[in-house]
Simulated scan of single mutants.
Amino acid sequence: MKRNLSSFAHPVCATLAVGALAVLSGCSSSAPLFLSDGRATTLVQCPVGSDSCSQQASASCGGAYDVVRQSSASGTLSLIYACRAK
Score class of each variant (00 low, 15 high):
residue 62 G to M: 07
residue 60 S to I: 00
residue 43 L to E: 07
residue 39 R to L: 01
residue 61 C to Q: 07
residue 16 L to N: 07
residue 18 V to D: 03
residue 68 V to S: 02
residue 37 D to W: 02
residue 70 Q to S: 15
residue 10 H to S: 07
residue 57 A to G: 06
residue 39 R to E: 02
residue 48 V to T: 14
residue 36 S to G: 12
residue 46 C to S: 09
residue 67 V to F: 09
residue 85 A to W: 03
residue 24 L to D: 11
residue 16 L to V: 12
residue 24 L to I: 08
residue 3 R to F: 04
residue 14 A to C: 10
residue 79 L to A: 06
residue 73 A to Q: 13
residue 63 G to E: 08
residue 6 S to F: 04
residue 77 L to P: 01
residue 42 T to V: 09
residue 73 A to P: 00
residue 47 P to Q: 13
residue 27 C to M: 12
residue 58 S to D: 07
residue 21 L to N: 01
residue 75 G to P: 06
residue 52 S to H: 01
residue 63 G to T: 05
residue 72 S to W: 03
residue 8 F to D: 03
residue 76 T to R: 14
residue 79 L to M: 11
residue 38 G to W: 02
residue 25 S to M: 14
residue 64 A to G: 07
residue 55 Q to K: 02
residue 42 T to Q: 14
residue 82 A to G: 03
residue 81 Y to Q: 06
residue 26 G to V: 04
residue 12 V to L: 15
residue 38 G to H: 08
residue 16 L to P: 03
residue 11 P to M: 06
residue 69 R to F: 11
residue 42 T to W: 08
residue 50 S to A: 12
residue 60 S to A: 08
residue 70 Q to H: 11
residue 68 V to E: 11
residue 78 S to F: 05
residue 22 A to E: 08
residue 44 V to K: 01
residue 10 H to T: 03
residue 85 A to V: 08
residue 47 P to T: 13
residue 12 V to T: 15
residue 83 C to V: 05
residue 66 D to T: 13
residue 69 R to M: 10
residue 56 Q to I: 00
residue 53 C to E: 01
residue 58 S to Q: 15
residue 37 D to N: 15
residue 83 C to E: 09
residue 54 S to C: 00
residue 13 C to D: 11
